[in-house]
Design a protein around this nucleic acid. Sequence first.
DNA 1: TGCGTCCGTTAGAAGTTATAACTCTGTGCG
DNA 2: CGCACAGAGTTATAACTTCTAACGGACGCA
Lengths: 234, 234
Amino acid sequence: MAETGTKAPRERYRAQVRAEIKERAWEQIATAGASALSLNAIARSMGMSGPALYRYFAGRDELITELIRDAYRSLADAFHAAATGSDPAGPDPLGPDAPGPDVARPDVDALARALRRWALDDPHRYFLIYGTPVPGYHAPDDITAIASEIMATLLDACAASPSDRPATPFDAHLDEHRQWAGGHPAPPAALRRAMAFWTRLHGVLSLELAGHFTGMGFDPALLFEAELDDLRVT
Amino acid sequence: MAETGTKAPRERYRAQVRAEIKERAWEQIATAGASALSLNAIARSMGMSGPALYRYFAGRDELITELIRDAYRSLADAFHAAATGSDPAGPDPLGPDAPGPDVARPDVDALARALRRWALDDPHRYFLIYGTPVPGYHAPDDITAIASEIMATLLDACAASPSDRPATPFDAHLDEHRQWAGGHPAPPAALRRAMAFWTRLHGVLSLELAGHFTGMGFDPALLFEAELDDLRVT
DNA sequence: TGCGTCCGTTAGAAGTTATAACTCTGTGCG
DNA sequence: CGCACAGAGTTATAACTTCTAACGGACGCA
């Protein structure tokens, strides 16, 4: 990490320009969405013209892949920070106000709120990961590795709080096909809860971020918390 | 409906060409995704060249809006068919095999399975409605009207099966801000359950359709049914 | 039969990604 | 210290895209 400062100047400059390109790309995505990302517009906004960007990225696809990788990395970091309590935004800012019906699960709750904060912080970044898939695209291995890291953090948290819910047939199915857990020693109930965490919170968040709740009147934050409460008994 | 046959030949031809354009558009979306939809390619595949399509659609946006409208209409019809039992695919094909822990709720279950069938039938159509939103786009009123129709069908089903779950503060919040229900007389518990139906099943379906479960080993259909089971106690 | 509307055409402007070829500058090595 | 080479940025070009404009022809209605 610290060695990047001692690199050759040529390479240093290259890394700096790459970083600026990605930064402009994020800005552009934030205003016009990922599908409208234009290499030409990025080059223009940087004062250089057109094909110069091809020195730094093989093409639009490689740039977007890099952005997706950064998005996954950012989520993994946010999860890790929330799990270890080193959350820069403070430990659950809206957490203690509304204690759940039962015992507190600091890990899972902190993860959920970190996820929501992370998603609201940049909706386009969220949709880059969880939005409409690009038909031909397959994520490279290092990106799926980050996804596994995220899942491992979630499984840690779910395994930390035991469940008193009776096992269902689906719990057994999930336990029989647990290769997706990547060797994580979580019990079946934790597998089930991690999956429910993922699917339910994604359900709420993706609808909220896509604007399907706008004009409906209720508060999406309360819906999120209600789903989080229901996860407590799952 | 039957009057379209008696229309003027000019208008009849126009409607026919519009329909064929939309058909080709769906084919193209199915293979390359909505973002890659090209008017030029559609025209080429129809044997006519380029700008001829502008006689029928003001532009790409209008065509896509039309496709979104058709997608909503199709989902509303599928829901309505499932709710009234006139389901062309037969009443819940995988339903009776695994009876839930409690009383059967034919309406809600049928709706859920109709939703999954509809989604798997054409994933791109699903993402046209529930996928990454286009930044500048706002759906016209008649489309939001179809969305309300879908929600009304769901609320009907949820109101039909009473809940023995104690009311939560969020149920009250949903009841206080119930303008999204469009005057539907559903009780608070039904509002809550409809919302959970929507968000949870969307969570599972969208992750499944986007391919986030591929290679994980478990069966997404069982996850869907497990979430449907959990809705029974919500 | 004739007139007018509407359809499909070609031409062209402005944008995109991406490649090829050229210039020039800065780096590192002898 | 100077020189040669690698690499950055340039322009030109090709092949796309959406979309506008102007033209010709055919079809339907009176």
